[in-house]
Design a protein around this nucleic acid. Sequence first.
DNA 1: GCGTGATTACTCGGATACAAGATGTCCGAGTTTGAGCGG
DNA 2: CCGCTCAAACTCGGACATCTTGTATCCGAGTAATCACGC
Lengths: 133, 133
Amino acid sequence: MKFSKATNYALHTMLFLAVSPQNKLIGVQQLAERQQVSTTYLSKILTKLVKAGMIESTSGASGGYRLKRNWEEVSFLDVIHAIEGTASLFECGMNHGPECLIQQVMLSAEQKMEEHLRNQKLSDLAKQMPVVQ
Amino acid sequence: MKFSKATNYALHTMLFLAVSPQNKLIGVQQLAERQQVSTTYLSKILTKLVKAGMIESTSGASGGYRLKRNWEEVSFLDVIHAIEGTASLFECGMNHGPECLIQQVMLSAEQKMEEHLRNQKLSDLAKQMPVVQ
DNA sequence: GCGTGATTACTCGGATACAAGATGTCCGAGTTTGAGCGG
DNA sequence: CCGCTCAAACTCGGACATCTTGTATCCGAGTAATCACGC
């Protein structure tokens, strides 16, 4: 039970794009170097973020990635769900009645965490950081 | 990022012991049958609970497991930590300054969940359930 | 009846097998930019 | 100067290879209760 490295890469990439000059395309090379990860692997992660509608990509020479219009509303939970999926963290696969009390406790605990992550926008963090050229 | 099945088994076993007649030893066979899991695997999980001081075991014929004295104070978090370990769910392994803002957000989110799990005792659930013979 | 040993019913621990998911690589295909070149 | 071609610099996607971890099994060892047997 741990968050995957991919989630870490995704969050850091989003934050890096947030403190970069807007509308400027940034290649996956630059993003990968900064995080010590291969470009091919990172591009796979970014593809998920594109499909989730958080960033957009441009092909061809001088192509790259940049945030989409509504990026200021993107929360930590959005990024995590895009990478890890939205399935529940705990599933009591047993057949002992329809309502498992344990399941309910675990579910509400998970929702506590999600609520906190939903309230944390990337833009909140970006404000606290210096803009990178 | 999911809770392991082992955690599920551990929680259900603890709850089952909680609604069983106290001080009565229950064999791993009975526990395993109820959860559709092999006895050998379940016994490995229970060993962790023994080492964590939540239950105690007795060897030999008519041996088995039972809760320890202080079981009414055992929380969900205690069980989870005994099985999954106490490591943080998120670790930013990057070298970009001592204080990673992302790490801080993730950590506080995790603590929100843990706080909820710490307040949920197994004895709370046991009270809501009929005693099983 | 009573000790003694064998049998049985258990837990315990290590070693190992198996499966699934996370992580990472390779390569071919498509796309855009820009340079080079001929008219 | 203009338009064409071609190479370079990218992203994209599928198919792998690898590594880690969770899940599960097997087997031998230890332990305690119970039974059998001989005295």
